[in-house]
Design a binder for these strands. Structure first.
Lengths: 149, 149
DNA sequence: TCTGAAAGTCGCAAACA
DNA sequence: TGTTTGCGACTTTCAGA
């Protein structure tokens, strides 16, 4: 994957901030014609630099007000570690990071209520044969801030 | 903020998966006319359920290959706690969650290289008068998976 | 890699059920 | 809340430089 030059960075920044911006406006903001802007966006998508577009949603409003981080450690360190695949089946698991340190993975999960968290923890332990350590999120001052390009 | 009914859920799910889907296609997928779909989307935006739209970007390709979680604890528990605002000025900080447990906040940060992480940690400690505990992300099997609605 | 033009699609507002 | 209708804007492709 090649480097990203300035003009492309600018385009990426625009689209991260407003994923529905028109190519015409991207062009105006970058001094390109509509088609040139469009072509560059398409190339960014093909190169995998822009992975896609998503609506940013308020998960509380959708009935998932409780967020938690769950650190996960295999009970049998000798067993083959396929925890990410095993946990991918659980819809509540929004992210899975392999990490350095005491534990092997950090999961980010969203559920509707404390009881759902309890159920989810049981599922996680059973699915991946792991022990867990849970940190409940009380509030989120901010999240998903665009990177400074 | 009112509850979200089934049709709206469906629309949200569609737009989370493809933030650039046309209202015509949203309509086709939900059995609504283009304008009805459009109106519902607009209402979802006004209610704050859809916060906006963003391009999903490969941060590695943008020169930020190193992700870490930093747990943060105020050194002076008696001081007024404005850490989130103080840390908001640091572009590397992508998210800030207030959490229950030993530490007060969990930050998610992205930097270009280990040396940048060192610099950032110093900035964080200085800006918010906190101690830190850092967990480096080795790889991310998945992240930002859409919630199952 | 850019521009400019042509054709089709879409966004958006208005009028009405 | 919903549908239909219509105009202007936008997307998309292509020829040409």
């Amino acid at each position: 994957m090649g480097r990203v030059e300035d003009l492309d960075r600018q385009i990426v920044r625009l689209l991260v901030r407003d994923g529905r911006m028109s190519y015409t406006d991207v062009g105006k903001a970058t001094g390109l014609s509509t088609s040139a802007a469009h072509q560059r966006v398409r190339r960014l998508e093909q190169r995998g630099i822009i992975r896609g577009y998503a609506a940013v949603v308020d998960s509380e409003a959708l009935g998932l007000p409780l967020t938690a981080f769950i650190s996960v450690k295999p009970i049998d360190p000798a067993a083959p570690d396929d925890a990410p695949e095993r946990l991918a089946g659980l819809d509540e698991v929004e992210a899975c990071h392999s990490v350095a340190g005491e534990e092997s993975y950090i999961l980010k999960v969203r559920v509707g209520a404390p009881g759902d968290l309890e159920t989810l923890l049981a599922k996680i332990r059973a699915a991946a044969n792991v022990s867990t350590r849970t940190t409940v999120v009380l509030s989120t001052p901010y999240e998903g801030r665009p990177p400074n390009l």
